[in-house]
Computed example of a mutant assay.
Amino acid sequence: MISPVIQEEATGCGIASVANIVGKTYPEMKAIANGLGIYADDTALWSDTQYVRTLLKNEGIATSDNEIPFTTWDNLPDTALLAIKHHQEDGKDFWHWVVFKRIDGNAMVIDSAAYLDSNTRTDFGEMTPKWFIKVSLLHESSFDA
Rank of each mutant, 00 (worst) to 15 (best):
S64H: 11
V109P: 01
K57G: 06
D117C: 00
N106S: 14
V22A: 03
N20L: 01
D117K: 14
T72I: 10
E9G: 10
E9Q: 14
S47Q: 13
V109I: 12
I32K: 06
F124S: 09
I61V: 12
T11I: 01
K24M: 15
E9M: 12
W131P: 01
S17H: 02
H96R: 10
S141F: 05
I68M: 01
S136M: 06
R53N: 09
T71A: 06
L138W: 08
D42E: 12
D111F: 05
W95H: 09
L82D: 03
R121G: 07
I2Q: 08
A31G: 02
H139N: 13
A16Q: 06
D93Y: 08
E140T: 15
Y51S: 04
P129K: 05
S141A: 15
T54Y: 06
V98M: 08
L82Q: 05
R121E: 07
M108G: 00
R102S: 08
R121Y: 06
N34L: 00
S136C: 10
I68P: 02
N75R: 12
D48Q: 11
V135C: 08
D48S: 13
A31W: 03
T43Y: 10
H139Y: 14
A113L: 12
D93W: 11
T43M: 12
G12I: 02
G60R: 10
T79P: 00
E140G: 08
Q50I: 13
H86M: 13
V18G: 06
G14F: 02
R102V: 09
V18I: 12
A83L: 13
T25N: 09
I61E: 04
A16I: 07
M1P: 06
K92Q: 13
T11Q: 12
N34H: 14
Y51P: 00
I2R: 11
T72H: 04
A83E: 07
H139D: 15
P4T: 09
H96W: 09
M1C: 07
T120A: 11
S112A: 14
L76G: 01
H96N: 11
K24D: 13
A83D: 11
Q50C: 09
V22T: 06
I6E: 05
S118C: 10
T128P: 00
G12Q: 03
E8N: 11
L137H: 15
V98F: 03
I38M: 02
T120L: 05
I68N: 04
V52P: 00
N75I: 00
Y39G: 04
Q7H: 08
N20V: 08
G105F: 07
G105Q: 02
Q50H: 15
Q88L: 14
L76E: 04
W131A: 09
